[in-house]
Write a protein that binds this DNA or RNA. Structure first.
Lengths: 181, 181
DNA sequence: AATGTAAATGATATAACATAACAAAATGAA
DNA sequence: TTCATTTTGTTATGTTATATCATTTACATT
């Protein structure tokens, strides 16, 4: 159990997160190589920092982490790296939180034609802070159905459902939030 | 046609927008009266300014408009009014745009138990800038279905679909964007 | 009308998030 | 090497949002 791939990190605070990080970085290296994009040391490091856990991370949190290890780092450094990672579909931005989270689906998308961008839908637990990217055929169908009926051509989807995950519903009080997992 | 209620303001730039404003303000007065909430002159004016059109408005745009008519106005004045209006379900915040838009469904919600908050789903045209609140049974069903299967209790839904509305798809070039409609 | 209380607004400051613009360095191709 | 392009560094500023405390207003009670 400890080294399995974690598809649903809700209620999995004790999983072997190192394997999540390694998997994400390996997939990112492969995806960039395949596309002829450059996962530079800075970009790789930012991606690694985003993957510190399964909780969305703010740009300025990342900035502080980079500053801890590199001294003076300015906001554009972080935002440029995040732009690159988002463009490659390696990271998603959660609009309702103004924060970023690593994408665990790199490389296994059918709709990945060259670039890695894809619609990302999330469940976000307001208690433990974990965000999980979901994929649901009925949801996708409903969206394309309503867009079609309205004659609307969707270019970007922001779908973020916040509430309580199953694990957090099953405990009476809020637990302290750690920064990872 | 000119005085009809506009349910879908995409491609309706010439509609009688005054009737939209009047309807929204009347509905807001009624809703607040029913709930024992106070739609003060400031809150009412902010709501009116939000309803200048069917395009999302930034908090600082509203601030500037208020300053034009009242001299010195500080950000908290606008944000407090917006908080109130959002809590009452009279205005929605579009997370992907960091902007606000009037809700045209005040008072006709089945799930309106005392307070007026409700999930709001949007189509947002990236060309004309208009945002339309939609309601789709299949979408609602898909959401509750996937949440149920995941054991997730949804508290807030952010669903914002950006792209091109039917009218904008049917014209080759972007038209100039006016501030209302 | 005077008083007390809670709600709303005013005012100041600052926090938090993000980008424009230009300089310097690193990279890769010719 | 030279050149062109991409990436990173640096400075400054723009944009969005909130914390805090003072003041005013609304309104129920006396």
């Amino acid at each position: 159990m400890a080294n399995q791939t974690v598809d649903n990190p809700f209620a999995a605070p004790g999983h072997d997160h190192r394997s999540c990080i390694v998997a994400a970085l390996d997939a990112a290296e492969a995806a960039c190589a395949r596309r002829g994009e450059r996962l530079t040391p800075l970009r790789r490091r930012v991606l690694e920092l985003v993957w510190r856990g399964h909780r969305p991370v703010g740009a300025y949190d990342l900035l502080a982490l980079l500053q801890d290890e590199r001294g003076r780092v300015a906001p554009p450094t972080v935002y440029r790296a995040l732009d690159f990672l988002c463009t490659q579909g390696l990271v998603h931005r959660l609009e309702s939180l103004q924060a970023f989270i690593g994408c665990g689906h790199t490389g296994n998308h059918m709709d990945d034609q060259g670039d890695g961008r894809h619609a990302a839908h999330f469940l976000i637990c307001q208690d433990c802070g974990v965000a999980v990217e979901i994929r649901d055929g009925q949801l996708d169908g409903a969206i394309s159905g309503l867009a079609g009926r309205a004659g609307f051509a969707i270019a970007d989807e922001t779908i973020e459902l916040s509430g309580l995950c199953a694990a957090c519903r099953n405990q009476s009080v809020s637990r302290p939030v750690c920064t990872t997992s």
